[in-house]
């Protein structure tokens, strides 16, 4: 491997260039101010060096105009930087609607990756180039952090809840995947690689592995095995609310509050069903804490998501589940 001297990591995602641009801007600002201060300090220090033992300095020691000037100019610069940085941040945390969804589970000390089509990998993640990919993540133990330097994306991965990030790779190749939240003994071995492939190569890669059940199908099977379907039947007759169209909708609770049925809501409703009971239903659902692992939960989540109306259908057929405006 050639040891070339690099100052920037490879740019391999759509946001990488934006992050590097603001980085270079701030380097420019920093170099300018550092040189300005250093130059003035040196100039004053030499120009006004002490020439006689008893000498003292002059009286010029305050100027409101100067104080305002050197407060306002940096303020304008940092506020402009803030808006620019916030714009990139919002981009990073708002996945496009057509992103395909991967799942990542952190565990001391490995990454378990699952593809939407059900393939599993450990410490490796194969993705197609040029396709927006959303990664929904959780941890089985402590806090981890999912970091792909070449994509300039990072998010902590927490036990007990879901976090997401997204990226669109712009070039094929193999890139580092690091855990960046200290997680114990082998934190520095909790590393992996992201392999970005041409879409056809990715399809071949998928076909090359053992036939897999997709996440949503696996969730549907689990839904049956755990007998969820006994109560959560289609239509209004079930003892639990019907789940079609629930994901992403506004749900009215028995407490009168309304919440958006997102990933963390679905998770909580399975593990701690009494926390947010849907209006009009009895709090009779038992907890499934300890009966389903993180991967099973992700499969159930995918199944519930697959029951949501597609964006196009939503517009055509607004049903009782709400209008899906969470997108």
């Amino acid at each position: 491997m050639s040891q070339e001297i690099r100052m920037l990591p490879e740019q391999a995602s759509t946001v990488a260039g934006q992050v590097d641009a603001i980085y270079l801007w701030l380097i420019g600002v920093s170099v300018f101010f550092s040189l300005l201060i250093a130059g003035l300090l040196l100039y004053f220090a030499i120009r006004y060096r002490r020439r006689a033992e008893g000498e003292v300095g002059g009286r010029f020691d305050s100027s409101t105009l100067l104080e305002i000037t050197w407060s306002v100019i940096p303020l304008v610069i940092v506020l402009a930087t803030f808006f620019w940085g916030a714009k990139i941040y919002f981009t990073m945390f708002r996945p496009p609607a057509d992103a395909i969804e991967y799942f990542a589970t952190g565990k001391q000390w490995m990454w378990k990756i699952q593809h939407p089509s059900g393939q599993r990998e450990i410490n490796e993640m194969h993705v197609p180039v040029g396709v927006p990919i959303k990664v929904t993540m959780t941890s089985e133990d402590v806090i981890h952090s999912f970091f792909i330097p070449a994509f300039r994306v990072k998010s902590d991965v927490l036990p007990g809840r879901y976090t997401t990030l997204w990226f669109k790779a712009t070039k094929t190749g193999t890139f580092h995947l690091f855990c960046t939240e200290y997680c114990g003994s082998e934190h520095s071995l909790m590393i992996g690689k992201v392999v970005v492939m041409e879409p056809e190569a990715y399809q071949q890669w998928l076909a090359g592995g053992p036939a897999a059940t997709s996440m949503a199908e696996a969730g549907e099977q689990l839904f049956g095995q755990l007998a969820c379907s006994t109560c959560h039947q289609d239509g209004p007759t079930g003892r639990g609310p019907a789940l079609a169209g629930v994901f992403g909708s506004q749900v009215r609770l028995a407490s009168g509050r309304t919440v958006v049925a997102d990933e963390n809501y679905i998770r909580e409703s399975i593990l701690n069903p009494q926390a947010k009971v849907v209006f009009g239903y009895e709090p009779i659902m038992p907890t499934y804490q300890g009966q389903i692992g993180e991967e099973g939960l992700l499969q159930l989540l995918s199944y519930v998501k697959s029951l949501a109306p597609k964006p196009a259908e939503t517009a055509a057929a607004p049903d009782a589940g709400g209008d899906g405006s969470a997108r």
Binding site: V19, S30, T81, Y89
Partner: peptide, 13 residues
Amino acid sequence: VFLGTLGLDVHVH
């Protein structure tokens, strides 16, 4: 200031 900048902190955090 680099670290206080949202989109940049995500990468260097």
